[in-house]
Amino acid sequence: MQSFKEAFSRHLRHPSTGPVGWLVKHILVRTNRYLEKEAARLLGIQPHDRVLEVGFGPGLGLQYALEHIGGDGRGKVYRLEISPEMIHSATKRLHRHIASGKLHLTLGNVMNLPYPDNSMDRIFHVNCYYFWDDLDQGCKELNRVLSPGGAMITTMDYKTLKLSIKRDLNAYADKYDPYAYMKSLEQTGFTGVRMEHLKDGVKDFEAIFACKE
């Protein structure tokens, strides 16, 4: 059982192939869908926006962000993913948007974002900041690529997160404290940092907002 828990935790942090990877992927699809949808909605995406999703999962938020962008606007959606398997999965599902030039997928790490300064208008991520090697460095990079006047949001289910850690199913989520994350946001130049406890139908979740002046 302990070896399964370790493998499950490892795939949560860095999704890959194999039976445990398949299980984690399907659990993420089921549990993250509403969080991805709410993040895209709360971000207030406009048709001309350049939107970045920083991800550690199936990339469900890409579809919602693309719906807000639409097909006629100048906006584009970018996805940074640490897992080649998740890049492959998103590429198969959203190949039409990639071919149209509206969607760009990149393999990389939030510690060193492969985007120019001030190149994104909106940024969102779901259930991933607590896996970053260095919170301050990750937040510093996100602030660097966000344009002045831009906004960022992360959504999470804090209750479920704490339960997964208690059950030893999320051993690598060692920076899960949202207040530590919010402190890093403020220290690296974000303003208007706040957390709201919200509800999507019957599901409770948390959203952390930040912007760049």
Rank of each mutant, 00 (worst) to 15 (best):
M1Q: 10
M1E: 13
S3T: 12
F4D: 10
F4M: 12
K5L: 09
K5M: 09
A7I: 05
R13C: 11
R13T: 04
H14C: 13
H14Y: 14
S16W: 03
S16A: 14
P19L: 06
V20T: 03
G21D: 00
W22P: 02
L23Q: 05
K25R: 15
H26M: 09
L28K: 10
L28R: 04
L28M: 15
V29E: 09
V29L: 13
R30S: 14
R33M: 12
R33F: 09
E36L: 08
A39C: 12
A40C: 14
L42M: 11
G44L: 08
I45L: 12
Q46F: 08
D49M: 12
D49A: 10
R50A: 14
R50D: 10
V51W: 05
L52E: 07
G55H: 07
F56L: 15
G57W: 04
L60V: 04
G61Q: 08
L62A: 01
Q63M: 11
A65R: 10
H68S: 14
G70L: 02
G71E: 09
G75H: 10
K76V: 14
L80V: 04
I82F: 07
E85G: 02
H88D: 03
S89I: 06
A90V: 00
A90K: 00
A90P: 01
T91D: 02
K92D: 00
R93D: 01
R93P: 01
L94Y: 00
H95I: 03
H95M: 05
R96I: 01
H97K: 13
H97G: 05
H97I: 03
I98Y: 00
H104P: 06
H104L: 15
T106P: 06
G108P: 09
N109D: 15
N112G: 07
N112C: 08
M120E: 11
D121F: 05
D121T: 11
N127Q: 15
F131Q: 06
W132F: 02
D133E: 07
L135F: 00
L135C: 02
L135H: 00
Q137S: 04
Q137F: 00
Q137G: 01
G138N: 03
C139T: 11
C139I: 07
L142Q: 15
N143E: 08
N143H: 15
L146I: 07
P148S: 07
G149S: 09
M152Y: 11
T154K: 12
D157Q: 10
D157N: 15
K159Y: 02
R167K: 06
L169T: 02
Y172R: 03
A173W: 00
A173G: 06
D174E: 05
K175F: 00
D177W: 01
M182P: 07
K183Q: 09
K183G: 07
S184A: 08
L185N: 08
T188C: 08
F190C: 13
F190K: 14
G192C: 06
V193W: 04
M195C: 11
E196I: 04
H197M: 09
K199T: 14
K199D: 05
D200F: 14
G201R: 13
G201Y: 07
K203N: 15
I208D: 10
F209M: 09
A210H: 05
A210E: 07
C211N: 14
C211V: 09
K212Y: 01
E213N: 14
